[in-house]
């Protein structure tokens, strides 16, 4: 039997030198796991002209970097990256392979795990190590977010997991010398590649992205009318946040789907989530219950939203929102003055 696989690898998701923050978050967590397991931590960089990125990986605590530099690897395509990553894994036998649960990470991980015939756990929110059994304990919400399941991978390597962005803190980059870089080759010819990226269309939304914002004011059917939904926008604006919505509000046509929070919309974990006129159906709760502070405004004292609320207010949201918006504006002005002074 071959040597037991060793080392924790983090797939560094990058394009044109831009690295996805989740990759650094995973380097931080990977360091902790590697120390616990008594093994090394490595970053894996696939792309073209990636030396700068490789150096930065060391700054985030890598013992070594595995890299393939090939023009076919930029921009990202499933076919080329899975080919390269599978090759590296076969050649160097890592014990654990971590990726961000981003569009790219989720696209790539399933292909790689299948080709390596190993187990993969998606969207982890917690990782740990069973030192004795050398197992990665992969915890993730399951079945609508009501249950946390801890999943293990038996007798196959690498043990693979994707992790949701913003689950782990991003570590500070340290000044660190570059160390071992193991370079691989992509054994693909341009003619072998059957997918071509024709263009990228960046659709930067003016208002940003719901899952990347710190303050969300969300409205539900309790607001009654589309006109009243404007009150949600007003408060969001006053707080410098974004407007969110429950599914019924979206289905009523009061706001577009890109603002929907919940099982069938965005999962968010902002600092502040204000739920106005949202009753709190389970499918909504699973999308927002990880917010730091939840304010619930609802007429119905028995609304389930109050069960997750940090602060609850029994009131007609349509009446309360404008009053609170004025209050916020008043105080924000005061704050600005204080800050200047």
């Amino acid at each position: 039997m071959a040597e037991h696989p060793l080392g924790i690898w983090v797939y560094i998701e990058q394009e044109k030198g831009q690295v996805a923050p989740v990759s650094w978050e995973l380097m931080g967590e990977g360091r902790r796991l590697a120390d616990k397991l008594g093994t090394s931590l490595s970053g894996v960089v696939l792309g073209h002209q990636i030396d700068k990125v490789i150096n930065r990986v060391f700054a985030y605590g890598a013992d070594s970097v595995y890299a393939i530099d090939d023009p076919l690897l930029e921009p990202y395509r499933n076919q080329t990256h899975s080919h390269g990553l599978v090759q590296l894994c076969r050649d160097h036998q890592p014990e654990i392979l971590l990726m961000g649960a981003t569009t790219t990470g989720r696209d790539l991980s399933g292909s790689v795990a299948t080709q390596l015939a190993t187990g993969l756990t998606a969207d982890c929110t917690e990782l740990d190590i069973d030192v004795e059994k050398r197992k990665l304990l992969q915890t993730r919400p399951a079945f609508g977010g009501n249950i946390l399941a801890t999943i293990l991978c038996r007798d196959r390597w690498p043990q693979m997991a994707t992790v949701r962005p913003r689950v782990f803190p991003e570590p500070e980059a340290q000044k660190a010398p570059s160390s071992t870089v193991v370079r691989g080759k992509l054994s693909l010819q341009p003619k072998d590649v059957t997918v071509e990226v024709i263009k990228r269309i960046n659709e930067e939304r003016k208002e940003g992205y719901l899952d990347g914002t710190d303050i969300i004011v969300a409205g539900g059917r309790g607001l009654g009318t589309k006109e009243n939904f404007q009150l949600v926008h007003n408060l969001a604006q006053a707080l410098g946040g974004m407007a969110g919505a429950s599914r019924p509000a979206v289905e009523s046509g009061w706001i577009s789907y890109s603002h929907q929070v919940g099982q069938t919309g965005y999962s968010v974990r902002p600092k502040l989530y204000i739920a106005a006129g949202i009753s709190g159906a389970i499918q909504h709760l699973v999308g927002m219950q990880n917010a730091e502070i939840i304010v619930a405004i609802n007429k119905d004292p028995d609304a389930p939203i109050f069960r997750v609320a940090t602060y609850g207010i029994i009131a007609d949201a349509a009446e309360f929102l404008p009053i609170f918006t004025e209050e916020v504006k008043k105080r924000m002005e005061g704050k600005a003055v204080t800050a200047k002074a």
Binding site: L120, A149, T150, R307, T310
Partner: peptide, 14 residues
């Protein structure tokens, strides 16, 4: 199936 659920729990209540 290489993956298996070793334990389950409920998320901590707020």
């Amino acid at each position: 199936s290489p993956t298996w659920v070793s334990k389950t729990g409920t998320p901590p209540l707020r």
